[in-house]
Design a binder for these strands. Structure first.
Length: 476
RNA sequence: GGCCCUAUCGUCUAUCGGUUAGGACACAAGCUUUUCAAGCUUGGAAGCAGAGUUCGACUCUCUGUAGGGUCACCA
């Protein structure tokens, strides 16, 4: 057995706000791949754009990943052998490699002002030409004092060809190569430069990222070449599309803060499951999978090339399936969060009923909670609602009275027990005739949970009181 | 506009030249504790178009079409 090189992947978000589903999926694939092969997964923060930085982002990112059960072996918060993992703390590294590039003639200071470049760009546009900075390289190269941007010099203008683990053989024309900025005038490196240095120093073997970076790969390749680096394996992930049309997922179509899902009572395993399947499929019919199973089944070969729409309904369905996989205690603690005014004992009884009716726990805050309010408040009987179709008032009173006796005499611990003492009677008198008024007298509603469950969970005493109250209302 | 990527039911997908093109979500119908929800059963629903390669193409090639990405001192 040959010793395989350890796999190292990373997730490297910029701290510019919350983490949304797109970012999470990238992290998920990189993590799953590393875990599957016993490799290392790194959390690096790419904070080189100080203007766009949003305070609290890093904490937020960490919290999001942690909630989802995505863990890392090295990273900003826990350190590791390649610390620091914050790009703004790694400026010395970038400077070191920048100097190497300058020495080798691969980098030069950009003498233009931003206005001058904008002008050149505008002119090119007017003449319907592609603007390429390399057409305007300065005649004489000055020394870089750090106040001007440092540009990479493309020495060989050529067509680029490379291999992508998902897309296969890719290529791009020579116009994809231009003198791009390595280090900005504020001293911070650009993504294009920094990620390459970091990946090198951190030993990253596989780069997972979305397909908007394909167009930049030729530049990365030129840089790898200039530094004599063997590029990591490139793994391009398909885009996640919004439900509205075919555009990339935007906030409007569901690219919301991943922690919102937590707050709305989604199951993290469900989100992991759903996101894993947006752009990857292990084959076969099994769709509900635990994170463990996903890791086990994960392979780059099964990552898709084409984009997938974010389908809220399917997520809802998956979440429901995952709720059902949760243990009673977990379910109960989640339910308590959203129905605090219900007593613990009552919720314990109602749990199976509740779990059956929701797709995510947050539903309990609005619509679904209405269903259960009847357990807290006794309904006021409305005679007209109590009568089934064209049954008479007298008959309805008779049915309810008879049911009353049966409940009194029978056992009512579980819905099934209740059912067994009422159904024979309902069958002889007509199910609708008996069951409808019974259910409405208990719930006060035309649409509700079935009568047997109501009796079992309301308890014998309360059930009898409600039925009596209904009979009273009918007689009045 | 230049460059690049993608293309199977409405949606997510299986198929790696030979299948009645399978599954899931959603939808519809039926069944069940004549309601609601859940559940179960059943059903409708797809290879972008045109050439070519081949005994045989959803699968390979080309062209077209459509959609997407990218052309920053953002990542």
């Amino acid at each position: 057995m040959s010793q395989e090189k350890q796999i190292v992947t990373r997730f490297a978000p910029s701290p510019t706000g919350f983490l949304h589903v797109g970012g999470v999926r990238t992290a998920l694939y990189a993590w799953a791949f590393a875990r599957k092969h016993g490799g290392r997964f790194i959390l690096r923060i790419e904070d080189t754009d100080k203007a766009r930085e949003v305070e609290g982002s890093i904490t937020h990112i960490i919290e999001s990943l942690t909630w989802l059960g995505i863990d890392w072996d090295e990273g900003v918060d826990i350190g590791g052998p390649h610390a620091p993992y914050l790009q703004s703390k790694r400026l010395e590294s970038y400077k070191k490699y920048a100097n190497i590039l300058i020495e080798k003639g691969y980098a030069y200071p950009d003498p233009y002002s931003e206005e001058e470049i904008a002008e050149l760009r505008l002119k090119a546009e007017q003449e319907k030409r592609v603007f390429l900075f390399r057409d305007h390289r300065p005649e004489t190269i000055g020394t870089w004092d750090g106040t001007k941007p440092l540009r990479f010099k493309i020495k060989e203008i050529k067509e680029s060809r490379w291999h992508d683990a998902v897309r296969g053989e890719l290529h791009a024309g020579p116009e994809a190569l231009d003198d791009f900025i390595l280090i900005k005038s504020d001293g911070y490196p650009t993504y294009n430069f920094a990620h390459i240095i970091d990946d090198l120093e951190m030993g990253v073997t596989h780069i997972m990222r979305a397909d908007e970076f394909i167009a930049s790969v030729p530049k990365f390749l030129a840089l790898y070449e200039a530094l004599s680096i063997t590029p990591p394996i490139l793994v391009t992930l398909p885009p996640i599309l919004g439900a509205e049309g075919t555009k990339k997922l935007s906030k409007r179509d569901g690219a919301k803060d991943i922690l919102d899902y937590r707050n709305e009572g989604y199951v993290p395993e469900a989100l992991v499951n759903f996101l894993a399947f947006l752009g990857w499929n292990p084959g076969g019919d099994k769709e509900i999978m635990t994170p463990r199973e996903i890791i086990e089944a994960f392979s780059i070969e099964k990552i898709h090339k084409s984009g997938a729409m974010f389908n809220e309904e399917k997520l809802l369905w998956m979440n429901k399936e995952h709720i059902r996989k949760q243990g009673d205690e977990v379910q109960l603690s989640q339910i308590k969060k959203f129905m605090p005014q219900y007593g613990d004992e009552l919720l314990k009884k109602l749990r199976p009923l509740i779990v059956d009716r929701i797709s995510f726990y947050g539903e309990l805050l609005s619509v679904e909670q209405e269903e259960f309010r009847l357990f807290l408040e006794r309904p006021v009987p409305v005679p007209e609602k109590l009568i089934w179709k064209d049954t008479s008032k007298e008959k309805t009173i008779e049915y309810l009275t008879n049911v009353l006796t049966r409940i009194q005499e029978g056992s009512s611990g579980t819905p099934d027990e209740v059912k067994s003492c009422i159904m024979p009677y309902a069958d002889t008198e007509g199910r609708g005739n008996v069951l409808w008024p019974l259910r409405v007298s208990l719930s006060g509603k035309e649409k509700s949970i079935d009568p047997f469950s109501l009796i079992a969970y309301l308890g014998k005493e309360e059930s009898l009181a409600r039925i009596n109250s209904a009979i009273g209302a009918l007689k009045a």
